[in-house]
Design a protein around this nucleic acid. Structure first.
Lengths: 197, 197, 197, 197
DNA sequence: GAATAATCGAGACGGTACGTCTCGTCTTTCC
DNA sequence: GGAAAGACGAGACGTACCGTCTCGATTATTC
């Protein structure tokens, strides 16, 4: 399983590119960072970026995947509300504060709207992220904490939807408080639907 | 209340610009429509666009506001589930099909992520839309259909969040079915939260 | 004497730009040629033009310098009248006929009046052209064909002045006939000025 | 002999336009003055300018004609050198100093190169100006001060050509000194052409 | 240890959209 | 009906970024 002759890909360059991309996005926002900026700041030729990634968005997506997978654990507190609160809290924490990944995620979502081709790859990434939340909810249904007729997929859309909605518009904060409130509200969907008298 | 001398703003040009903008966005998608395209198609000088709007996004935002207010009524069926289903259905209907406003809204949300200044104006528009949904929910609380301790703002974020989330990612359809499911789920929040034993 | 890293300037693009510029100016006139036209016709990006030249005028100036130095030789017939006739004839020939450089030079002179900054660069070019004529006259003074108290600079202004004046106004032709007449008139300045009695 | 109904052309506006045009051109240069500038500065509607003149250049041309005819007399000192010196001196004086008409004339000549239609009208104006100089020279031929075989038209081109050449390029001053030198050089063309020995 | 091959930083290239500017015309209100 | 005010259609300008291509230098493998 030889790799053939030729110079090997520079891991140093790869790391510099990903790190610089996140750093610049955090400080300037997606729209104010160009590929030339990233290349210059990383001390790298522009072709080195395009050799390994299709576009700026793909660089950023990989950078996000790196950071996110490193920070968010899958909780198991024994109950749905605890699980949800823990999961949402740690997710939201990565999106708050000046060093947050909020700018990165907002930029990616924007790019997915403008670039059909990238949208597919972004969607795939997002689907992966849904898995954790979905498994929490499925577990809750099994434990009887959620009514069996609750549509889990829709619930996932509502929870992640609320997160993205606040993230993209910035009209309300995403913090521990919001995580707890979302978890609490979700747990009220426990009982079968109230019957009309 | 005189307007002083000088030629009046051409309502004809305004309408042509807004109509052409929506038309082109529907058929080509936000990223494939340029300001020159709009100007040419509307038979208008480019300066006439920039005289009244700051950017392509602002044109599109006004066009959307026009269309949306014309197509989406505020329902009053007497009950929360009916109201919600009606409101979400008509909203989703405007976002479905090949002639839908989905491309318009996705483009605007994307632009709001890339252009700090436009984001403010977009947020203001969105706040307006939230008002309608919020009023439905507040009315339901008053009628006792929703528990009084439900956080209405958060519920609005979950409902509109789910909509935007599906709209932006396109992983699941937005139709009558989804509207009904969201309404049903919401109506489970009838009783005050069960106390811990 | 290294040139450093990076892709070299494309000589092919440079030639295409200069050739297209002269070609378009000849057929359409300076005012009817845009930078976009030149770029499109030369199969070149607009930025490639602005990377190497400050403006349309500078492109055209370099194109003119190319053509002029290639077509107009410095004569040496042994006598002033022959030299002058030859020099002016070949100069005027380049300015006559439908394929002439007249439009190019008129456009440049016009631009020099409208653009302070370009004026400097144009003046420098013109000074160079004056050098050739001046050297012919200085040689004639040395040979005794012109009186030693003739102000050579002023004579250059009168000869080139007459040329530009006809070129810019177009009220009289610039041809072999005019060249000979100018040469003949100049050769009358043989003897020192007659003293007042 | 009524002039029909309607408001009469405002002489006040006409003067304001011409004066402002010259004033702005003097201080900013032709290329940095727009029609809107002139209208605003003159306190006049733009249409009032276009109602009476075809273009900015025509306004400026009329303004120049006003000023020039008021300042330059036709001299008669009894001899060619005196006449020429006087005529050129007073002409050059109007072109020197910060309050000069140089910017006006340079701008007009530039515009004549870019606007075919205006060129005709400008040429007509220039032809008129040639009359005075031509008459001086014809008178000199009649008095025997110039050889009868001297081509007067060509001489006019050389004298005015030298002036315009210096005016447009600014490489040498146009003043009393230059006027005298041009006159002196012209007067050396007196004698019939020197015969070859 | 020379030849071959892929990568690297640098930066020019073709292309495209942007937002600004000016022109000369058209429209409205006031006198 | 002329005038000031100012919006309009048209279209060139110069800038910014994208993603590709070219250059000479720098590693790795293969013969």
């Amino acid at each position: 399983m030889s790799t053939g002759p030729g110079r090997k890909r520079s891991e140093e360059a790869r790391r510099a590119i990903l790190d610089v991309a996140v750093e610049l996005l955090r400080t300037r926002g997606y729209g104010n960072v160009t590929v030339d900026d990233i290349a210059a700041q990383a001390g790298v030729g522009k072709q080195t970026i395009y050799r390994w990634w299709r576009s700026k968005a793909d660089v950023v997506l990989e950078a996000l995947a790196d950071h996110a997978s490193a920070t968010i654990p899958v909780p198991d507190t024994g109950g749905l509300e605890g699980d949800l609160t823990a999961f949402l809290s740690s997710t939201f924490r990565a999106l708050s504060g000046p060093q947050s990944l909020a700018a990165v995620m907002r930029g990616l979502m924007a790019q997915a709207q403008l670039d059909e081709e990238f949208a597919d790859r972004f969607r795939t990434y997002i689907e992966g992220r849904r898995g954790v939340l979905r498994s929490l909810l499925v577990r809750a249904v099994a434990r009887g904490e959620l009514a069996p007729d609750v549509e889990v997929e829709l619930l996932v859309d509502m929870l992640f939807g609320a997160m993205w909605y606040r993230l993209l518009l910035g009209h309300a904060p995403l913090g521990r408080r919001a995580a707890a409130a979302l978890a609490a509200l979700t747990c009220r969907l426990t009982s079968p639907r109230a019957l009309e008298p």
